[in-house]
Simulated scan of single mutants.
Amino acid sequence: MEYQNLLIQNKDRIQYIIINRESKLNALNKDTLTELHTAFSEAFKNPAVGGIIITGAGPKAFVAGADISEFAHFDVAGGTALAQQGHSKVFDLIANGNKPVIAAINGFALGGGLELAMACHIRMASETAKMGLPEVTLGLIPGYGGTQRLAQLIGKGKALEMILTADMITAVEAQQFGLVTHVACPEDLLPAAEELLQKILSRAPLALASAIRAVNAGYTDGINGYQTEIEEFGHCFGTRDFKEGVDAFLGKRKAEFKGE
């Protein structure tokens, strides 16, 4: 598929999804969200893709928010549908993906942009990045999972402070709060994300998918995370990767996982 708002680049088993609306600070409009749904759906199904790095074009912004002009005149029904569709087609799709997704936050990550980063499995940030959820300054609240994922990541009190004040935080503060795991200088951000993802991709692919499902289960209402862990653990014993991992360990050699 030819994308108008995204750049797709493949490097070995890593796929880059780059939001390419630099003149708009990579704001999320309807078309971009549709393209993100397609790009991630295809990446999760593509056996040649082991993991994904998502970032924004240019040095200023990862995603500086949603395109407000598109929903300025929505009513209650329109706003509800906007959030519902965003959750199911993009944000939850990423969070529940079967392959690791790293957000490389290269600049402003505000509103829907921070929510997009929080839907990813791991977040890394440039030293110049700024993050926040400013929706209350528009008379709104975060609608793409921000109220839930931010509290899960940094705790209820700090999440409420960020949401209710609409204040931005720096990359260093985000790391201190647990919102991002690594901070790098701008030129080192993508190499650092690649290095981390390459390490992850040296592990068993089916086990990676099981680990993501098990961790997510603990944050999903109505699902027993411990039981999910037990079931996923058991499933791993039926994979060829498990047999390869054990043989490699006992034979003191590097495992060659096939995702089978």
Rank of each mutant, 00 (worst) to 15 (best):
D241V: 03
R21S: 14
Y144A: 05
G251K: 09
K254S: 08
L138G: 06
G157M: 11
A209Y: 01
G218F: 15
M162A: 02
Q15Y: 07
A248P: 01
P134S: 11
A209L: 06
E161P: 00
G238Q: 12
A166Y: 12
G234C: 09
E127A: 14
S41K: 07
L179G: 08
D92W: 00
L110R: 03
K11P: 00
I68K: 10
G157D: 13
G143H: 05
I102A: 10
F257H: 01
K254C: 05
H235F: 15
T220C: 14
V172Q: 11
L196C: 11
K156P: 00
K24Y: 15
K158E: 12
M168V: 15
D167G: 13
T55Q: 14
A103G: 06
A255I: 13
G218S: 12
Q198H: 13
A184N: 09
F44H: 01
L179K: 03
E195I: 04
D12C: 06
R13K: 15
L133S: 04
I53P: 09
M118P: 00
Y219M: 12
A184P: 04
G132Q: 05
I163D: 05
T80G: 15
L164Q: 12
G259D: 12
D75I: 04
P205V: 13
T55G: 06
I68N: 09
F108M: 14
G50D: 05
K258T: 15
K254R: 11
E135T: 02
L138I: 06
V49A: 13
A104E: 06
L153M: 14
E22W: 02
P134G: 11
A48E: 15
G86K: 02
S23R: 08
K99R: 10
A184L: 10
L25T: 07
N216V: 03
N216H: 10
K254T: 14
G155A: 10
F74T: 13
A248D: 01
I17H: 01
E260F: 15
N96R: 07
A151E: 10
A72S: 13
N5I: 00
E260P: 04
L250C: 12
K89M: 08
K258S: 11
L190Q: 02
R253Y: 05
P142M: 12
L140W: 14
T181C: 07
S210E: 06
V63Y: 04
G56H: 03
L93C: 10
K254W: 02
E35S: 06
A129L: 06
V136A: 01
L28Y: 04
L196W: 04
E70S: 08
K60Y: 12
R253M: 07
A95T: 09
I52Y: 00
Y3H: 10
I8W: 00
E115P: 03
V76S: 10
P142K: 03
S41R: 01
A61D: 09
I223A: 08
T147H: 06
E195W: 10
V101F: 10
N106R: 00
A43F: 03
I200W: 05
I163Q: 03
R123H: 06
A192R: 07
A61I: 11
A211Q: 09
N216D: 09
A64T: 02
L160Y: 08
L153E: 14
V90C: 00
K243I: 15
E2Y: 04
F108P: 01
K11I: 13
A72E: 06
A166M: 08
L208Y: 02
D167R: 13
N46H: 07
D221T: 14
L82D: 05
L206Y: 02
M118K: 04
E127P: 01
G146C: 07
R253D: 04
G56Y: 01
